[in-house]
Design a protein around this nucleic acid. Structure first.
Lengths: 192, 192
DNA sequence: TAGTGATTTCAGAAATTTCTGAAATCACAG
DNA sequence: CTGTGATTTCAGAAATTTCTGAAATCACTA
């Protein structure tokens, strides 16, 4: 591996990190390299920079493409493919979230749903279903929230993020306003 | 493996899923088994139920304990350890988030910070630092948000979740109220 | 203190994943 | 068509991870 030292630390770290997720070392390293490169890089150069075989690069790039994490570029009068990552880190975050959901959450949800359809044949199964149903409910809540907020434009999302828990303050304020409204002009349709 | 069919599907799925995260098949299976079991289970019984060696169970339980995902229980007049998962799925979610952050996010943040302290020795390094700084900023925003909302009680958190993107509506409403207030009683300290 | 049963450790076996080099395929130019 | 260079595929090699059984340790009792 022959890279500027600062880039090398980053690449190596992503390699190690990669294996802590499901992706492997090489894939992580390639991604890191592309992320910090000032211009699109061709496969040959990746292999050289990281000191790995050409074929390994080919397979790892395929993997990254399956994750929608790299972009193909071309230069005029050059048949080779060049690769980059999207510029916008928010965009990258969204892709990552989407892909991980697809791979990790969706299959679990569908298994849970399937199991919950079945009729329990014993107390043990009845209890197990109860637990799975709790899990199912939680995951559904989380994915609904996700589907909802992922529609937001980045700017709004960032605002929301920076507000953090302060939004609850806002909620309280709203509640106060609403109940204030109610006490002045009580709504007979409201049972509480 | 000799389990009620419905439990078995769940356990097998978690095994497969496990390897898609960083944890291995056995750890995933054991966790799933404990999660749906009506009462604490001892190591011997886990080994039997899943058809794996006693020593493998021991090591995997150790791993789960490192993740704070299991609880030890004892029965009177029984020296053996019995294991369960916490009851509350929200609590489990929090633990999971905390541990993954600790293992996946924190080390990355610290590597990024370290690299960003260094003086770039070339244009390539300067550009790389620029990119890493974008990544660093984004991750910091996300972790700040996380540190903030994780303090909320579960009930509030659930409310927030179910609101989803609708909170932005609330923000807009607030903005309207604020600007309304301003136009009627302009604040000279406010430059905009 | 010796004995008993539960648990953990750990070296090596087994399984799985990752990586490579050689061959095949592909896309284009002459 | 034929040649050239880029890319992909894939069988097996290499590396890594997971799993086991035997031995060691531990905690407690008699």
């Amino acid at each position: 591996m022959n890279l500027p030292p600062l880039v090398q630390s980053f690449v190596l770290h992503f390699g190690e990190m990669g294996s802590r997720w499901g992706i492997n070392r090489t894939v992580g390293q390639i991604y890191a390299l592309l992320f910090v490169s000032p211009a699109p890089v061709c496969a040959e150069e990746i292999a050289e920079s990281l000191g790995i075989s050409r074929s390994n690069v080919s397979m790892s790039l395929r993997e990254l493409q399956a994750w929608n994490l790299v972009i193909l570029k071309h230069k005029p009068d050059d048949r080779r493919d060049f690769f980059t990552t999207p510029d916008d880190v928010w965009h990258i975050l969204r892709t990552l979230a989407e892909e991980r959901k697809k791979r990790e959450v969706d299959p679990t949800l569908s298994v849970l749903r399937e199991i919950l359809m079945q009729r329990p044949a014993s107390d043990a199964e009845r209890h197990a279903q109860q637990r799975m149903s709790e899990m199912h409910t939680l995951i559904e809540q989380l994915t609904h929230w996700y589907e909802d907020v992922k529609q937001l434009e980045t700017e709004r999302l960032a605002t929301l993020l920076s507000l953090g828990a302060k939004v609850t303050k806002l909620l309280e304020a709203k509640d106060r306003v609403v109940s204030l409204g109610r006490s002045r002009r009580p709504n007979p349709a409201n049972k509480s």
